[in-house]
């Protein structure tokens, strides 16, 4: 295993009285694709949303424990939540383009962070950056002639790739993907998977998926959750071929979940 970028230490999450994550301790390796698998309701999405503190946007959640990003606990009092979310990007299950043009969607993150001004000093024009990330998301060719039309006019598959470009444009170190292809047709889904594989050389990716085949195709590292508990984590090949825990074996065989 390469050096971990995110270290999760004894993480507990409650929704009201429901104990959704129970004492999770696991490392997420840098510049690899980590897949989080498990039956629905096991806490996969909760784990993901704890990594960029999006959990606190839902009323009544309580979090204890630590999530260390590069050695710094993102739940520390002094940490600015917007900074966490700048460094940890996210791709939601359903594409939600922002109510603006395609171009502005990609530029939005950089603009709110005040980056275009800095970029200009470095000779990086916003247009070039928008193009670059639309290319990275595999969308450039389809939208280059209508960058300034509303993003709501794109197909669902295109919208999801736009959301990918939008997330990448902030240049996050980590990209969280919550069932990123569940709302897509097979071809769009394949495109997204290709793009994820292409960017993992620079970006650490965490994918939540309920599809074992997708986990097979994508994952370098695997985390298996069961009813809010961590059952098993390790290099994907090892977990798939030789699971240590009986529940993992049963889940992978399709007997449970």
């Amino acid at each position: 295993m390469t050096e971990p970028l995110i270290e999760i230490r004894d993480l507990n999450v409650w929704y009201g009285t429901e104990h959704a994550l129970k004492g999770i301790t696991v490392d997420i390796p840098a510049r690899q694709i980590t897949a989080v698998i498990g039956p629905s309701g096991c806490g996969k999405t909760t784990l993901l949303r704890s990594l960029n503190r999006l959990l606190e946007e839902t009323e009544g959640t309580r979090v204890t424990g630590q999530v260390l990003l590069d050695g710094v606990n993102i739940y520390d009092r002094g940490v600015d939540v917007t900074e966490v979310r700048t460094r940890v990007g996210m791709l939601a299950p359903k594409p939600f383009p922002l109510p603006m043009s395609i171009y502005d969607n990609v530029a939005y993150g950089r603009r709110i962070h005040g980056l275009p001004v800095l970029d200009k000093g470095n000779g990086r024009h916003l247009d070039r950056i928008v193009e670059r990330y639309l290319r990275a998301a595999g969308l450039w060719e389809e939208v280059k002639d209508r960058l300034h039309s509303p993003a709501s006019g794109l197909s669902t598959g295109q919208q999801q790739r736009l959301c990918l470009a939008r997330a990448l444009a902030v240049e996050p170190e980590v990209l969280l993907c919550d069932e990123p292809t569940s709302a897509l047709d097979p071809i769009s889904a394949q495109r997204i998977e290709e793009q994820l594989r292409a960017i993992k050389t620079e970006t650490t990716i965490v994918v939540v998926t309920h599809s074992l085949r997708q986990a097979h195709r994508l994952a370098d590292y695997l985390i298996f959750l069961w009813l809010g508990e961590l059952v098993e984590a390790g290099p994907a090949r090892q977990v798939f071929q030789n699971p240590r825990d009986e529940r993992t074996r049963a889940y992978l065989a399709g007997d449970i979940g």
């Binding site: 600015d80 917007t82 900074e83 460094r87 709110i112 962070h113 005040g114 980056l115 800095l118 240049e171 170190e173």
Partner: peptide
């Protein structure tokens, strides 16, 4: 790492936004 330098440069901006 690249983000560190960027973070230093944008620290002022972030503070203003906050």
């Amino acid at each position: 790492m690249a983000w560190r330098t960027r973070e230093q440069v944008t620290a002022v901006i972030r503070q203003r936004r906050r």
